[in-house]
Write a protein that binds this DNA or RNA. Structure first.
Lengths: 351, 351
DNA sequence: TAAAGCTACGCAATCGATTGTGTTATCAAT
DNA sequence: ATTGATAACACAATCGATTGCGTAGCTTTA
């Protein structure tokens, strides 16, 4: 099988008796090329099925038209939606998106960053691994002025652009909602504290309790490093069997909240009347569980689009604005898992 | 801000008073380079933080170490898991993965294929858009001997490697299971017929009915082009209000099945005793719905890994085996949505 | 009519790594 | 001491596209 050589600008140049540079310029619609020549080049290029060699162009121009993405996993509702958003705007602007996953491991994250750096990506979008507390592996991008945008799970001590949701406010709203439903003993199922999203949701939770003069009971604040379905069951078992059972639970994700509801049902605890529950993320499962789970909406696709926009627009820009945090609002979705028939006390004022 | 030039083999060569070719060979552990020279080169490369320019190497060697993926969407449980699998094996072999989504549109699929072709990918993994019935846009890959592997939603008239599940058998098993539970009037919620997966699931369904001498009623066979949640409701409404209501329903995906169950519950139809239901995919929601949904397991991550393996191993291989279909087995998961207490009639023999 | 200004294009270097083809030492063998 | 073999490296072309600079030819202007 003979290798069919690709058509190059040289082939076209030779055939038209012009120079390769003329062909190159004609193809790029350069002003200094005559109309006739331009037309002839375009025509022949079309005929010969000319495909520009982006690799060669990349080498010369030092641009790859590619951005990279590092996320913990890609097969999770929130993250896959986020990546979907990234792909949409990148695609629209003619950029490729290279993905990689850290599996929540620091080592993988470092390895992925290194690989992407080697691939000469022009921008990087990262949602941090659960494990990561050191962020040096991103410095080489910044030093080379390659924009790095963090999304959702972001570091706090690095000077760059971040796209996040207002986790604090969301945590506050969720908790406040439970309070307004008459809950007074509210537990929180949270993630690891060193990860901004979980810390802030908890902070919001604590702040709400404070604002409404409710006691903060450390026994009701759980820190889980997984927030998986299994963890959800384990935690549910613990919380619902406490001597003084909580009457409201704010979970930092839907997965754990759903497991908790399932467990509650299995032991005859009434949701929402015995215990009101609210989750986080608005995963598909939240609408399926019975009773449907109240939750917080994450604008995942939007976040992806925004992150991509940030990365792409940061390019060849002066570094006046080095750091920036874009904070998106969330929305509280009240469903049956937390909607009580009881009228909240009048003493409670809306914030 | 001064542009820091990257360290090249020329820099290293100059500093060591050797030629760039020697540096290149030393870095690649070529045999014709002396130990001392090799060591010196490696040492200096390390010191200077040399990063090989993959673009330049690509241009010369005509290899990009990149594969492309085109899927309808990426934010769907099955597909994101599939991509996750692709990424894992590609990453392990040092390949990048560029993703793109067709949004189930033929036009997008064509555009994506074109873009990826331009990006000089070395392999392509595709799950077809719902719309696509023409596959010419993949021919240019095949002509250039770039491996194309189709996954799950595959064309039937193209000569290349495919990774699929045994949809026919799965459809058969699902239907047979309903029959064994005593259902005699079984409906099927299917997808568009021109898409292999849906056609085959339906074929399996029909075959099972035939084998057990049940009548095939066209009114009970629905073709939906979305199989969305909304469609599920619409179809549920239709099916459950038929004069002769079906007593079993096999849905080609979980989304529609779950909607159907929800609707059934809302109108007081007992699942599984009035109507037994089975879905397809084992989406997370299938375990959350009450009663839990029986379904068919798709080995999504495995399929992704396999597809990637196929693509990567097909390279620089002679084209002896041009076409190959790898068919994976599925598993029937019986949950409460289809488990009846009734003993199936003795007349029913297992296949 | 000569100087100045365009128009339309060609030349050749460049981006870095790779690789086929030399070219020198060095050493063993006769 | 001469030859052939081998080790260790250098040269230079190559992969295609891009681009700063240069120039021939034609037009315009004083």
């Amino acid at each position: 099988m003979e290798k069919k050589r690709e058509v190059t600008i040289y082939d076209i140049a030779k055939e038209l008796n012009v120079s390769p540079s003329t062909v190159s310029r004609a193809l790029k619609d350069h002003h200094s090329i005559g109309k006739k020549t331009k037309k002839a080049v375009l025509k022949l290029a079309e005929e010969r099925g000319y495909q520009p060699n982006v690799i060669a162009a990349s080498l010369r121009s030092n641009r790859t038209n590619t951005i990279g993405v590092i996320t913990p996993w890609i097969n999770r509702p929130f993250i896959s939606s986020l990546i979907s958003g990234v792909e949409m705007t990148a695609n629209k602007q003619g950029y490729n998106v290279i993905i990689s996953q850290s599996h929540d491991s620091y080592e993988n994250e470092v390895a992925n960053a290194k690989a992407l750096y080697g691939s000469r990506i022009e921008g990087l979008i990262v949602s941090l691994a659960m494990e990561s507390t050191n962020y040096d592996h991103f410095q080489k991008f910044l030093k080379k002025n390659i924009p790095v945008v963090f999304v959702d799970r972001v570091p706090d001590d690095i000077n760059t652009t971040k796209v996040v949701i207002n986790n604090y406010e969301a945590g506050f709203k969720a908790t406040q909602h439970l309070i307004e439903q008459g809950c007074t003993r509210i537990a929180h199922i949270g993630g690891v504290r060193h990860r901004n999203v979980y810390k802030e949701r908890m902070d919001g939770y604590v702040a709400a309790l404070r604002q409404y003069d409710l006691t903060i009971d450390d026994n009701l604040i759980i820190e889980s490093d997984r927030l998986s379905s299994e963890e959800g069951f384990r935690i549910a078992k613990y919380l619902l069997n406490l001597p003084e059972r909580p009457d409201g639970i704010f979970s930092a994700n839907d997965t754990a909240a759903v497991s908790l509801i399932k467990y509650a049902k299995s032991v005859g605890v009434d949701i929402p009347n015995d215990v009101a529950v609210i989750g986080f993320n608005n995963d598909p499962i939240s609408t399926i569980i019975d009773p449907p789970l109240s939750t917080i909406i994450h604008p995942a696709i939007e976040m992806g689009k925004l992150a991509a926009t940030q990365v792409l627009n940061r390019e060849d820009q002066t570094d006046i604005v080095k750091s920036q945090t874009i904070m998106l609002d969330t929305e509280l979705i009240v469903r049956e898992s937390s909607r009580r028939v009881v009228i909240p006390k009048e003493s409670i004022t809306k914030a």
